Amino acid sequence: MDGDYVLKKALENAEEYNDPILYDQENESFQDDIPFLLKWADKAEGPIVDLACGTGRATIPLAEAGFEMIGLDINGNMLAEAKRKAAERSVLVQWEEQDCTDFVLPNKSRMIFTVGNSFQHFLTNEDQDRLLNSVCKHLESGGIFIFGTRFPSPGELLQPSTEEYWRSYVDRDTQQKVDVYTISEYDPIEQLQHYKTIRRMEERETSSRITLRYTYPKEMERLLTKHGFEIVHVFQDWQETLLSKDAYQMVYVCEKVG
């Protein structure tokens, strides 16, 4: 598949990331995955790669803990904010603006991860194959790949196609209350959830769209095995709760075999 086409499709699904300041306001408070990543980072040597690193929500804390970090993302706006935050906190990170499905780094790593449910941005079988091929190429034998993705539970997939309230917060710049609503539509054939997010303030309203891929556990097992990974753990949260039918997330720890 042509690299320019892949890049174009990835950027078409990037409305939610056009404003990195807004993204951080809505997501930076989530820190549940950091202790989990730190535990596994302690077992790794050399550079650790954060794929789809965004504004460095996970990259920067690991760098502050003393780990050699590479943050890689396709979105230049998100990376610019990551660089600004890292400089503000006097943290050294190697930032790379590259496509996660076709990235090139000079050295292999003992640990690669992608969090924030970024795995769901790879919408086709071909996208997932290219991502895992790239990860496998850049992992040492016995290296660890960690990622999280939403569990395809009925409650997750069968969300209402009408507006549903999600959350509220106060915008740091305007000090206005922002009420956030979502509308979703699931395509069971393509396994894609189409989301529209609506943000309402006192005097205006904005909206953005994103599409996410859902992958079932047995499907994931075969996919990872095909690409040379052994599944070490599957949890339903970052607190290491074993996966159950009531899960809303799947956290995978995989080892490169051979």
Score class of each variant (00 low, 15 high):
1 M>R: 00
4 D>K: 01
5 Y>K: 07
7 L>A: 07
9 K>M: 10
12 E>I: 03
13 N>K: 07
14 A>Y: 04
14 A>L: 07
18 N>A: 02
18 N>P: 01
20 P>L: 05
24 D>N: 15
28 E>Y: 11
28 E>K: 13
28 E>W: 09
29 S>Q: 13
29 S>H: 14
33 D>H: 10
34 I>F: 05
35 P>I: 01
35 P>E: 15
36 F>K: 02
37 L>C: 06
38 L>I: 03
40 W>E: 15
42 D>F: 00
42 D>L: 00
43 K>T: 13
44 A>I: 07
46 G>H: 05
49 V>G: 02
50 D>K: 00
55 T>I: 08
55 T>K: 05
56 G>D: 06
57 R>V: 01
59 T>I: 03
60 I>P: 09
66 G>A: 08
68 E>K: 01
68 E>Q: 09
70 I>P: 08
72 L>D: 15
72 L>P: 07
74 I>P: 04
75 N>Y: 01
75 N>L: 04
75 N>D: 02
80 A>N: 08
80 A>F: 02
87 A>L: 14
88 E>R: 04
90 S>H: 14
94 Q>G: 10
94 Q>P: 08
95 W>S: 11
96 E>N: 13
98 Q>A: 15
100 C>W: 03
101 T>S: 03
101 T>R: 08
101 T>G: 05
102 D>C: 09
103 F>H: 07
103 F>V: 11
105 L>T: 10
105 L>R: 01
105 L>E: 14
105 L>C: 11
106 P>S: 12
108 K>D: 14
108 K>T: 15
109 S>R: 03
110 R>H: 14
111 M>Y: 11
113 F>V: 06
114 T>P: 09
114 T>R: 06
115 V>R: 01
115 V>Q: 07
118 S>W: 06
119 F>G: 08
120 Q>V: 08
122 F>R: 02
122 F>M: 07
123 L>R: 09
124 T>L: 05
129 D>I: 01
132 L>G: 02
135 V>T: 12
135 V>D: 14
135 V>L: 11
137 K>D: 15
137 K>T: 13
144 I>M: 12
144 I>S: 12
146 I>K: 00
147 F>R: 05
150 R>K: 14
155 G>P: 05
159 Q>F: 01
161 S>I: 04
162 T>M: 01
163 E>C: 00
163 E>Y: 04
165 Y>P: 05
165 Y>K: 00
170 V>I: 12
177 K>V: 02
178 V>H: 12
178 V>I: 15
179 D>I: 00
181 Y>W: 12
183 I>D: 09
188 P>S: 12
189 I>V: 15
189 I>Q: 15
192 L>M: 12
194 H>D: 03
194 H>A: 08
196 K>D: 01
196 K>R: 13
197 T>V: 03
197 T>Q: 12
202 E>V: 02
202 E>C: 01
203 E>Y: 12
204 R>A: 05
205 E>L: 06
207 S>C: 07
209 R>Y: 13
212 L>N: 06
213 R>S: 12
214 Y>E: 10
214 Y>P: 03
215 T>G: 07
217 P>G: 10
220 M>H: 11
222 R>K: 14
223 L>M: 14
227 H>F: 02
230 E>V: 03
231 I>F: 06
235 F>Y: 15
235 F>V: 00
236 Q>A: 02
237 D>E: 10
241 T>S: 13
243 L>E: 09
246 D>E: 15
247 A>M: 10
248 Y>S: 04
251 V>F: 11
252 Y>K: 02
255 E>P: 06
256 K>N: 07
256 K>Q: 08
256 K>P: 04
